[in-house]
C-alpha cells in the first residue's frame, strides 16, 4: 500500500500556525513522525491561509527535505503552486503530484499541464488524477469509470505509463445527505478501473474526507479502508499517525496476500513500495 501522510496541510491549525510563524520544527516533526509511522509519501499542501502560496510551497518542501528524504506528494489544485514546489524539490527518490481532474471548464488542458510536470520530474514522477471533469464530481459508477478510462487513455497516448498514474475516485463525506450510496459506488468503480490497463493504474482515495463531521472518524476511515483494499485499492492519503488505521491496513493487506505473515507483522508494516 502506498500510504501518503496527510498531516502537512495548511488546513490543520498547527501547520497553519507554523506556516504563519515560519516555525520549521512543527513541520519537520510531522515529517519525521509520519515517516516513522510508515508514510510512503508526505503530502504537502499550503492550505488557503498562506498569503503567497508559491513561496509557502517552496518553503515547506525545503523545510521537510532538511530533515528527511521521504518522497513528497505536492498537493494543490493550482498547477503553478505545484510547479513552485517541484522547483524546490529533490525528486531523486520520486515525487507524486496531487492532483488533476480530466478537464475543467476554466482549463480544458489541465491534465496535460500536470502530466507535463510529472514527466519533467523524471521516471519516478507520478500523478494523482481525479475521476472528475468539467461537469463536476460524478455520483454514479459508470461516469467515474468513463472519466478514469479517458485519463488512462490520454496518459498512455503520451507514453506516460499507467503505473505512474493514480486514479482517485473521490470519496465524499458519508454524513452529507444522500451520500451514503457513495462508498459502495466507489468500491464498484475501483473494481472496474483496475481492468482499464495492464499493468493497472494505482487506485487511490483521499480517505479522511469520508468521515468529515462524523463522531467516529477513525472507525469509519479504517473500516472503509479495509473494504477498499479488498477491492484492489493500493494507495491512500491517510492519517498515518492513526495507529489503529495503519494496523487495519497491514492486516487487510495480509489477508489479501500482499504481505507475508509473521507474528510481528504489525511491528514492521510500513506503507511499502513507491
Amino acid at each position: 500500500m502506498i500510504a501518503v501522510g496527510e498531516r502537512i496541510n495548511g488546513m490543520f491549525n498547527d501547520v497553519k500556525g507554523a506556516i504563519a510563524d515560519k516555525d520549521k520544527k512543527v513541520i519537520q516533526d510531522l515529517a519525521k513522525k509520519q515517516t516513522e509511522c510508515g508514510a510512503t509519501y508526505l503530502d504537502v499542501n499550503v492550505g488557503t491561509a498562506a498569503a503567497d502560496q508559491h513561496a509557502t510551497m517552496a518553503w515547506l518542501v525545503e523545510t521537510i527535505q532538511e530533515t528527511c528524504d521521504t518522497p513528497l506528494c505536492l498537493d494543490s489544485q493550482k498547477p503553478d503552486v505545484i510547479a513552485a514546489g517541484l522547483k524546490a524539490a529533490d525528486t531523486s527518490n520520486g515525487i507524486l503530484l496531487n492532483s488533476s481532474p480530466l478537464n475543467k471548464k476554466s482549463d480544458e488542458d489541465i491534465l496535460d499541464k500536470y502530466l507535463d510536470m510529472a514527466e519533467s520530474a523524471g521516471p519516478q514522477g507520478k500523478l494523482i488524477t481525479l475521476t472528475m471533469d468539467k461537469n463536476g464530481v460524478p455520483q454514479d459508477i459508470d461516469t467515474r469509470v468513463a472519466i478514469a478510462a479517458e485519463i488512462v487513455e490520454k496518459a498512455m497516448d503520451r507514453g506516460f505509463a499507467a503505473d505512474r498514474l493514480f486514479i482517485d475516485s473521490i470519496v465524499l463525506p458519508v454524513k452529507v445527505p444522500d451520500a451514503q450510496q457513495q462508498p459502495t459506488n466507489i468500491l464498484a468503480a475501483i473494481g472496474q478501473i483496475l481492468y482499464l490497463s495492464d499493468p493497472p493504474p494505482h487506485l487511490m482515495v483521499g480517505l479522511s474526507n469520508l468521515s468529515q463531521g462524523t463522531t467516529e472518524r477513525s472507525l469509519i476511515n479504517r473500516t472503509f479502508l479495509a473494504m477498499a483494499v479488498s477491492h484492489g485499492l493500493d494507495g491512500a492519503i491517510v492519517d498515518v499517525l492513526d495507529e489503529k488505521l495503519m494496523n487495519v491496513l497491514a492486516t487487510a493487506e495480509l489477508l489479501m496476500n500482499k504481505q507475508l505473515y509473521s507474528d510481528s507483522y504489525l511491528k514492521v508494516y510500513s506503507g511499502g513500495s513507491k
Binding site: Y261, D263, S264, Y265, K267
Partner: peptide
C-alpha cells in the same frame, strides 16, 4: 516455514 523465517529476522532486527 516462511512466516517463521520472517519473524526471526524481525526479532533479530529489533
Amino acid at each position: 516455514d516462511i512466516n517463521i523465517g520472517k519473524q526471526v529476522n524481525i526479532l533479530v532486527s529489533d
